[in-house]
């Protein structure tokens, strides 16, 4: 059973799956790191973005890999507006209110999707859905490889924004010292909204990467967010490198536990890891000690 012929492809597949998890987790951890809330609307926004990618393909005929360049800015704007005009004002500056508002939003978005598009599961047919690259000893699925590359591109882009731009510096400043940031003339409501927008853009990218091989229905995003939450805890709440590495680790864990325990128990490994992390290293791989 431990033959490398089986093990190595399982590892590689795990890494590639983990990349999309990482992307969803990246958005979640970014929002957590700055706004200090778990965004319960993350899954619903992922679902909404998957529908956007679905209709971009079926109605407009735009391939998801091209549509990402329209859908991610669009979802940045949606995320910005949600935080600026809905979540922020409805929370009156209380973190726990923000949490509940995002929970409420997720209910509204999911049911709006259910109302609009019913519970049908939909897929798209792209010519490259089953394309593979022959590595000699194994095959890699092209869509997964694209996802793997994309997560590093996104992580690099985020890192560049965070270190080289004023808005990135302001985001990091607000994350740790809100009052000091206000006195430096930083508009905290704007920074919160930009952060929420960036997190939402991350799920939009994930959605476009998923659509070629995955399906969408009004609750499709939830499965990913549960895993993404585990990744955020594993990588350290608020840590961007933690989200990327955590995503890859969780992808591999899931793939290997499917291999050893069977497909239906694949996710058991993820939650065993989750419990183990909480017991042994509650601050996560990259998290600072509380």
């Amino acid at each position: 059973m431990l033959s490398p012929v089986i093990l190595i492809p399982a590892l590689l597949n795990g890494l590639l799956t983990g990349a999309v998890y990482a992307l969803v987790a990246l958005g979640l951890t970014l929002i957590y790191g700055v706004l200090h809330i778990i965004n319960f609307a993350h899954g619903a926004l992922l679902t909404a973005a998957m529908f956007a990618a679905y209709f971009a393909f079926t109605v407009l005929g735009i391939d998801p890999y091209l549509a990402v360049f329209i859908i991610s800015p669009l979802f940045f704007a949606i995320g910005y507006a949600l935080q600026r005009f809905v979540i922020g004002p409805a929370s009156h500056g209380e973190d726990r209110n923000m949490l509940l508002v995002t929970l409420g939003l997720s209910v509204v978005i999911e049911n709006a999707l259910l109302f609009g598009f019913r519970a049908d599961t939909r897929t798209i047919d792209v010519p490259y859905a089953f394309s593979t690259i022959d590595l000699g000893f194994t095959y890699l699925a092209v869509p997964r490889l694209v996802g793997f590359v994309a997560v590093f591109v996104v992580a690099l882009a985020l890192w560049l924004i965070m270190s080289l731009t004023d808005i990135g510096r302001a985001i990091r400043a607000v994350a740790k010292e809100k009052f000091g940031a206000q006195l430096a003339g930083i508009d905290v409501a704007h920074v919160y909204a930009v952060t929420f927008g960036l997190g939402t853009a991350c799920v939009a990218i994930a959605a476009c990467l998923l659509m070629p091989t995955y399906y969408v229905n009004p609750s499709a995003g939830n499965a990913f967010v549960l895993v993404a939450f585990t990744i955020v805890v594993l990588g350290g709440m608020g840590s961007v490198p933690g989200a990327v590495l955590g995503g890859l680790v969780i992808g591999v864990v899931e793939s290997l536990s499917s291999l050893f325990l069977g497909d239906s128990l694949g996710q058991v490994g993820i939650f065993l890891i989750f419990i183990a992390v909480l017991l042994v290293r509650p601050q996560g791989l990259f998290g600072a000690k509380a």
């Binding site: 004023d166 510096r169 302001a170 990091r172 400043a173 994350a175 740790k176 010292e177 009052f179 000091g180 940031a181 006195l183 430096a184 003339g185 930083i186």
Partner: peptide
């Protein structure tokens, strides 16, 4: 003080000129 502990000295100063 309310400086930004997670930013470098340079980034702290640069944010002083964020709005002006």
């Amino acid at each position: 003080r309310r400086i930004f502990p997670n930013l470098s000295v340079r980034d702290n100063l640069d944010l002083g000129s964020y709005a002006r």
